[in-house]
């Protein structure tokens, strides 16, 4: 096969994969811009008229922004808390002389593999006894627990990559352990911190099962649960659901685009010696 044909084949295949991955997103973006009549038209219409009615309705009638606010609070707090704990834990696991490091890292990995359903019952019980059902902290706490293994693993591998001499140099130059960590180590591990932050945020933003279980009052429900409950007993507001889904997806897409380079560096860290 000639070079040109090969390249054409490559682009074609890439295009097919990208198209399949994007299809659901493109479909609800398309649906969100249709009018009520266009959504239910038979045969279906491919091109929307560009009406923003669904968005308006999602915001005004279905209280979309309220769910967005809740999601931002929960996902933001989860990301922040998990990151802080992960930085310390990752640093300790990467640098300090601790017994059974392998066991600790292994258990973290193991814990992250438990199916959510297997811990749902006990988690619900615990939160109930705290009186934390239908509170932000009631959702943030399990999210932090569930995302910690990810954060700790990413940051540990990042901190391990950094030469130990840098930290020794910082300590000789007048830093305490904490100053060395925050002035030298964390800035240098920024790709790792960003990667961890975004993955944690995406997890907390998208999570549905615990959110549904713990947040039974509309006041505290997050976006995924909120959108699922748009559906009434006799109604299926496709346009509004699509609009809300678009609103839920756009921040993630923006985040990933914005930090694309850093994330790629983060995910491939350790693959090649820098």
């Amino acid at each position: 096969m000639s070079g040109r044909a090969k390249r054409a084949g490559f682009y074609f295949l890439t295009l097919v994969i990208v198209f399949f991955s994007l299809l659901p997103f493109l479909w609800f973006l398309d649906t969100s811009l249709k009018t009520q009549r266009e959504v239910t038209a038979t045969p279906p219409e491919l091109f929307p008229s560009g009406s923003l009615h669904s968005y308006q309705s999602a915001i005004e009638q279905y209280n979309l922004l309220h769910y967005v606010k809740n999601s931002i609070i929960v996902a933001g707090a989860t990301t922040l808390i998990t990151l802080i704990i992960s930085v310390f834990a990752g640093y300790a696991l990467a640098r300090l002389r601790i017994k059974y490091k392998g066991v600790i890292m292994g258990s973290l990995l193991l814990v992250s593999m438990f199916p959510q359903i297997s811990i749902a019952g006990p988690v619900w019980k615990i939160l109930q006894s705290f009186g934390w059902l239908n509170t932000y902290q009631g959702l943030i706490l399990p999210y932090v627990t569930l995302t910690l293994p990810l954060g700790v693993w990413i940051l540990t591998s990042f901190f391990k990559e950094l030469p130990e001499e840098l930290e020794k140099a910082a300590r000789v130059d007048g830093c305490s352990h904490f100053q060395a960590l925050f002035k030298i180590i964390v800035p240098l591990a920024a790709p790792g911190v960003f990667t961890a932050a975004i993955l944690i945020f995406i997890y907390a933003w998208n999570e549905f099962f615990f959110a549904l279980l713990i947040m039974t009052q509309q006041k505290y429900q997050t976006l995924p649960v909120g959108i699922a409950l748009f559906q009434g007993q006799y109604t299926m507001p496709w346009g509004e659901i699509a609009a809300a889904s678009t609103v839920a997806t756009v921040p993630l897409v923006l985040l990933v685009f914005l930090f694309q380079k850093r994330i790629i560096r983060g995910l491939s860290a350790g693959a090649v010696k820098g």
Partner: peptide, 20 residues
């Protein structure tokens, strides 16, 4: 005494310059 209180300076094999 911690390193910062010893009034020492050190040069490392890898130089350990702060890359950022």
């Amino acid at each position: 005494l911690s390193p910062k209180d010893r009034d020492i300076a050190m040069v490392f094999q890898s130089y350990a310059l702060y890359p950022h």
